[in-house]
C-alpha cells in the first residue's frame, strides 16, 4: 500500500458516500444514471469473485464488501425505494449499456492474464469499469445543470482513477518486475473519459458558479 493507492481508494469511497448522502438527504436520485450504477454493481461482483479464494488483507476484504454492498444499495434505492425511484431521470438515461457489457466481455475473452473463469471475469470487470461512467456523463450532458453533490460524486470518481495511475507509476518505479498492462491501459482510458468533465468542473469551481455542461 502506498499513499497514492490509499488516496485512490479513499476518493473512491468518498464518491460513493457522497452519492448515498445525496440520495438519502434529498430523497432524490435526479441526475444520477441508474445504468452506470448497475454497471458498477456488475463490475464489483465479477471482480471480487476472489473474495472466496484469495485473502489479501482485512482492509482489502472490507473494502470489497463495502463496494459490493454500497453499489447494490444504490441500485436498490433507484429501482425500488418508493420515494427515490420517482425522481429517476428515465427518459434521459437511455444509453444502450448492454453494448458496453458485451464488448467488455468479448475483449476479456481475447485479452486476459490467464484463460480461467476467474481471470476472464476479472479482465471483464476492469474493461467494464473503464466505460461504466459513460451513461452518467451522457445523462449529465443531457440535463445540462448538475447539482453539487452529483458533480462532486463524478469528480471524486475521476480523482480515484487519477490516483491509481500515480500508484501504478510509483509501483513500477519501486517494485521489481511490476507491470499492470490490463489495469493500467484501462485505467488511462477510464481517466481520459473524465477529461471533458474535469475541464468544466474546474471552470465552475474557479468561477465559483454552478456546474453546467455545454449541450
Amino acid at each position: 500500500m502506498n499513499v497514492f493507492r490509499l488516496a485512490g481508494d479513499m476518493t473512491h469511497l468518498l464518491s460513493i458516500l457522497l452519492l448515498l448522502l445525496k440520495i438519502y438527504a434529498t430523497k432524490s436520485c435526479s441526475g444520477v444514471s441508474r445504468k452506470t450504477q448497475e454497471l458498477y454493481a456488475i463490475v464489483f461482483i465479477f471482480r471480487y469473485l476472489d473474495l472466496f479464494t484469495d485473502f489479501i488483507s482485512v482492509y482489502n476484504t472490507f473494502m470489497k464488501v463495502v463496494f459490493i454492498a454500497s453499489s447494490l444499495a444504490i441500485v436498490w434505492c433507484m429501482r425500488f425505494h418508493p420515494v427515490v425511484r420517482r425522481s429517476y431521470d428515465r427518459e434521459l438515461d437511455t444509453f444502450r449499456y448492454f453494448f458496453l457489457v458485451g464488448a467488455s466481455f468479448a475483449l476479456a475473452l481475447i485479452w486476459h492474464e490467464k484463460f480461467s473463469v476467474q481471470e476472464v471475469f476479472w479482465a471483464f470487470s476492469i474493461y467494464l469499469e473503464a466505460v461504466a461512467i459513460l451513461p452518467q456523463l451522457v445523462l449529465l450532458q443531457r440535463s445540462g445543470n448538475v447539482d453539487n453533490l452529483t458533480g462532486q460524486y463524478v469528480f471524486f470518481l475521476g480523482a480515484y482513477r487519477a490516483f491509481y495511475i500515480l500508484n501504478w507509476i510509483y509501483r513500477y518505479l519501486t517494485e521489481p518486475r511490476f507491470t499492470r498492462w490490463i489495469a493500467g491501459t484501462s485505467g488511462v482510458v477510464q481517466t481520459a473519459l473524465y477529461a471533458d468533465f474535469f475541464y468544466y468542473y474546474f471552470i465552475s469551481w474557479k468561477n465559483n458558479s454552478k456546474l453546467k455542461l455545454p449541450a
Partner: peptide
C-alpha cells in the same frame, strides 16, 4: 508457464 499475479488492488 507464468501464473498471473494475485490481484492485490481493489
Amino acid at each position: 508457464t507464468e501464473q498471473p499475479e494475485v490481484h492485490d488492488e481493489l
